[in-house]
Design a protein around this nucleic acid. Structure first.
Lengths: 347, 347
DNA sequence: TTGTATGCGTTATCAG
DNA sequence: CTGATAACGCATACAA
């Protein structure tokens, strides 16, 4: 519990000088700097964060709100951000909106009340207007959410390119009838992925069949539901691009239930590369979503702007195809025959 | 940014009285209490946490160190604890030891430096002595780690009973040759689970065969490795109890590779019931580990002791068998024939 | 380059 | 039941 005064006394200097040393001010002679350092070491001095905050109007802590902590998705993110901040002697306060707008908004207010110096937002339900006006109150940094006017504070994924590449891969493997299970229409990233899918089709001179596109929730249940719908519509396809890995899991469940074999009867490419993707059977070929890296980059940007006055800049991350075993090469000539449609009959 | 003085002025009282109201002291007349409340509402007053901490020697925040954030395990835990603290207007600081002792210890010191009022520990690599001496510095609450002398500050799982029940279930389903993949020997919970397995065998009058027990890491790779070892040892069994779900996933991977069908050739019961267990194929029958509930209970206990002076008490949680599709009923008479041993030959 | 003095917003002690 | 006032530990003008 040594205080700055104790250190000052021990070092034979004034408290102000100690403060200058701990804050790394240049205007301290090496000699006194050494003396102070020695005193700090001897006393095991650690500045009191509350006192610093009170006096400096700066808490040295960033807030982070995550839309939901429950998914398999956010552990690595928190880990990356926390580690990054610790290195710079800054602190992290986490709050979670439990998958809904109100809790997200409340979390934001909570963190502001705690006077965080900035906010890293991995939210999913905040309107663009809300975010724009929020950004007038304090520096905010967005991960994976496009907001007009806040582009420069944004770390995003190239969802379009990712889905395009996923689809293109399926085409390269000989598939011609390719379906797409997209996320809900109000999600921009879900839209971008569906558009990427369409683009790949167009690039390959393939027709876009609305019957081969289902929009649903980004969850396992959504995937199952989409497959049921395809089935009822009599959709016929050998390849499938899913909006995310979780919905791919739903597809897996549906296939297991219906006796559809992956990848023999149906080839699937997922999106996200969540932890469990490599453990399903067969291991899921998917587009890797570097969320942890993005979060890390985001914290870097935040730190640089808030504490060093560095300029912020938009960053776009790319996906990467992770080859596993859920896609089969097929001879293009046989695409007309589709196991799936047969199965569908008895749903 | 209204301060306590602004509120005091607005309400026509002294700052001290405002403080008394915010802290819920009884000795304030209802009339002035109302006046103050009105003023606070009008100004949108929120006490400054740093100033409170500085003045009261209490940060109103609990620290939590989690051994590793990366697993699929901790999201719900953080979510539960954070929510619980928020309700009581307390704050949560999270730090993670990245799966190793040093980072865990450093995280603990970091949180202490930040002057947290108490520590919730979900660590895995701290020695009993370290924890005992730590508990002399500040109140600590342990989740799932037995420490002699700190029993009352402990929220634990009945690992022994859980593994016993898992094994018993396999026995009930007709299995007689049952193997066990346990966690590393230095982990007390891993030991307890292996002991539970043995107990079930003894209870059923079945022999304990050392060849049917492999100890390995609590990871998917560990499960694969264990299966390879069983295979090389020529072990023969129809049922398997795994130390945790992650190693069960490794077993799944090994089986897929080797053409061993679950549950036809091998019945498996996992432990933990992680999120992805229900999505593997076949869905994994496992023992549910109520970690989130335990963490919530732990935060409750911590809150009650630290801020209300309530006594602490040890709590033991039980597992619950979650029936899915990885276990087959077999006719006891045919246990001698085991698909696994045949497969093993060509490993 | 260093020291002095003041204030940050709150709680706590002591009077009244 | 309420008010004045002195800390709490630090950062920061301002002076030297």
């Amino acid at each position: 519990m040594a205080s700055i005064k104790d250190v000052a006394k021990q070092a034979g200097v004034s408290p102000a000088t100690v403060s200058r040393v701990t804050n790394g001010y240049a205007s301290v002679s090496q000699a006194t700097r050494d003396k102070v350092q020695a005193a700090m070491d001897a006393l095991g001095y650690v500045p009191d964060a509350s006192a610093q905050a009170l006096s400096s109007k700066r808490t040295n802590t960033l807030g982070m709100v995550v839309s939901q902590l429950d998914g398999p998705f956010y552990g690595p993110v928190l880990s990356a951000v926390a580690g990054n901040l610790r290195k710079r002697k800054k602190h992290l306060l986490i709050a979670c909106g439990h998958g809904n707008r109100r809790d997200e908004a409340e979390s934001i207010e909570y963190l502001i009340d705690r006077k965080v110096d900035g906010l890293i937002l991995l939210t999913e339900h905040q309107s663009s207007e809300a975010l724009v006006s929020l950004s007038e109150r304090l520096p905010i940094y967005l991960i994976n959410q496009e907001v007009e006017g806040l582009e420069h504070r944004n770390i995003v994924l190239d969802n379009f390119g990712g889905a395009r590449d996923a689809t293109r891969y399926l085409i390269e493997q000989g598939h011609r009838k390719i379906a797409c299970i997209g996320g809900q229409d109000f999600k921009l990233d879900a839209d971008a992925r569906v558009e990427g899918y369409k683009q790949a089709l167009r690039d390959a001179g393939l027709a876009i069949d609305p019957k081969l596109i289902q929009r649903t929730r980004f969850e396992a249940a959504g995937g199952q539901e989409a497959m049921r719908n395809f089935s009822m519509d009599g959709a016929c396809f050998s390849g499938l691009v899913t909006g995310n890995d979780e919905s791919a899991l739903g597809v897996y469940a549906w296939c297991a239930e219906q006796g559809v074999s992956i990848p023999k009867d149906l080839s699937i490419v997922g999106f996200d590369d969540i932890f469990m993707s490599r453990f399903v059977n067969p291991p899921l070929t998917t587009m890797h979503f570097p969320l942890a890296e993005m979060a890390k980059a985001c914290s870097e940007v935040a730190l640089n702007e808030i504490y060093d006055g560095a300029p912020v800049a938009r960053q776009v991350f790319s996906t990467r195809l992770v080859l596993r075993d859920s896609v089969a090469y097929i001879d293009s000539t046989q695409t007309e025959i589709n196991q799936l449609t047969e199965t569908k009959a008895n749903v």
